[in-house]
């Protein structure tokens, strides 16, 4: 009956990074489930960075927006950097108008740029 419940969003590990590609219009429970799933995966794998690809999402409302920025803060406490990748222009404009400017959340145009950003993060940490 609840066919949404069945779907689990896959988390892929490449090197020391996790890659998550959100392909469905998530309902709230699925969004929260994804949040804990990613955090668990960070703990399990010791990943230093998470790339969350939202290029397919046609809408990010305040709930998903808060889930994503919460995700970034939580991961950062666990010493992992989160990069939100591929937000659509219309989604970005709407989020800003909604009042969710997501300060402190790293963003990248595409996976490649996101990866570069994480590499840079790592490099600057290594410099310290």
């Amino acid at each position: 009956m609840d066919h949404f419940q069945e779907k689990k969003i896959p988390i892929i590990k490449i090197g020391s990074y996790l890659i998550v590609s959100i392909q469905v219009d998530m309902h709230d429970k699925l969004a929260l489930q994804l949040q804990s799933q990613i955090l668990e995966e960070i703990e399990k794998t010791g990943a230093k960075g998470v790339l969350i690809d939202i290029s397919v999402l046609e809408m990010v409302d305040s709930f998903i927006g808060r889930m994503l920025s919460g995700m970034a803060s939580m991961a950062s406490i666990m010493d992992a950097a989160v990069v939100i990748v591929g937000m659509q222009p219309a989604v970005a404009i709407t989020l800003v108008e909604l009042g969710l400017e997501m300060p402190g959340v790293d963003t990248a145009l595409n996976m490649e740029r996101g990866m570069e950003l994480l590499e840079r993060r790592m490099a600057s940490i290594n410099d310290d």
């Binding site: 937000m87 970005a92 989020l95 595409n110």
Partner: peptide
Amino acid sequence: LKTVTSARLLGA
């Protein structure tokens, strides 16, 4: 400001 903030959300 709005333009700059939206661009930042895209990663620019």
